[in-house]
């Protein structure tokens, strides 16, 4: 009996040595497999939805959790992004199109890690289409379009869409006005900033809006005066000396002063208008 017990104990010991020893060696080996190969057969979310047998949101959760571990565990391997759009844009969000976090996290990885802002915006567009009442995705898309793509046109459009969604932060209106200014639509930007100034409910917003309105008013006035100076040159064959001459020529209804009440001046050679008042905000 004792010999039998000793034999069993020996077998258990041998098995433990085999398992622990091989495991220790395996764990010490560097990860050599192809990251993309592991994902090659991961089907589209639409098919997984059928296979999930009534648990699509739970399967989406599990794949999302796995994806976070996957993208944080492969270091700087070149192929780690091979199926990123597939996982976030097709698998997880195919299982649950209303799952907002995968769109946001997927876009974040695409921009920061893969440096592919276009794919990130495409993923967020997909999320916006599936969740039209969620303001976070157009807001995020606007931020990436502005900060990374420097596409102020698209950023303005994303922020405009965000503004229309109930619950969006008040700052979106300011971001939208700021993007219009950056893309060169100063007139609309001035209108928006004037509205923000009117509705401001705290001193910080009021001061910011007032500064923008001040500088934009000068920009809009100068642009208008530049056009009128060209017309004046056509009429009189010389550049105007002040806005009074534009009024006298019938090009302007009254003398135009800048927001600080000072007159605009014209360069006698080029005819370009300018303000003697300093801008309140830093110019790019």
């Amino acid at each position: 009996m004792k010999r039998r017990q000793a034999g069993v104990a020996g077998l258990v010991l041998l098995a433990l040595v085999l398992v622990a020893g091989s495991q220790a060696r395996l764990l010490a080996q560097p990860l050599t497999e192809d990251a993309g190969r592991r994902l090659l057969y991961l089907p589209n979310g639409r098919f997984l939805k059928v296979a999930s047998l009534g648990y699509p949101t739970f399967v989406a959760d599990m794949i999302y959790l796995w994806s976070i571990q996957f993208y944080s565990g492969y270091g700087n391997r070149v192929d780690r992004f091979a199926y990123l759009e597939h996982i976030f844009g097709e698998v997880i969000t195919g299982l649950d199109p209303r799952y907002v976090d995968p769109y946001l996290v997927g876009a974040l990885i695409l921009v920061v890690e893969k440096q592919d802002v276009e794919s990130a915006l495409a993923l967020l567009d997909q999320g916006i289409a599936a969740n039209p009442d969620d303001w976070l995705m157009p807001y995020e898309a606007g931020f990436w379009a502005y900060d990374t793509a420097h596409d102020f046109d698209r950023a303005a459009e994303y922020f405009r869409r965000t503004m229309e969604i109930p619950g969006a932060p008040a700052s979106t209106r300011r971001l939208h006005a700021g993007m219009l200014n950056k893309k060169g639509d100063k007139v609309t930007s001035l209108l928006l900033w004037s509205g923000i100034l009117e509705d401001a409910d705290n001193d910080r917003v009021r001061t910011t809006a007032a500064n923008h309105v001040h500088d934009l008013q000068i920009d809009v006035d100068v642009a208008r005066l530049d056009e009128l100076a060209v017309n004046f040159l056509g009429l009189r064959g010389r550049t105007p000396r002040g806005t009074g001459e534009l009024v006298a020529a019938g090009l302007l209804q009254g003398v135009l002063l800048d927001p600080d009440g000072r007159p605009y001046v014209f360069d006698p050679v080029t005819g370009k208008a300018s303000s003697t008042t300093s801008f309140r905000l830093r110019r790019p």
Binding site: F58, D61, Y64, I68, V105
Partner: peptide, 24 residues
Amino acid sequence: FLALLTVGSEVRIVADTGMAAIAF
């Protein structure tokens, strides 16, 4: 504990996993 592994969605993960476990 699964909720600790996620980025955002903690409430969702806990609720979804719990309800799915009960049903399954």
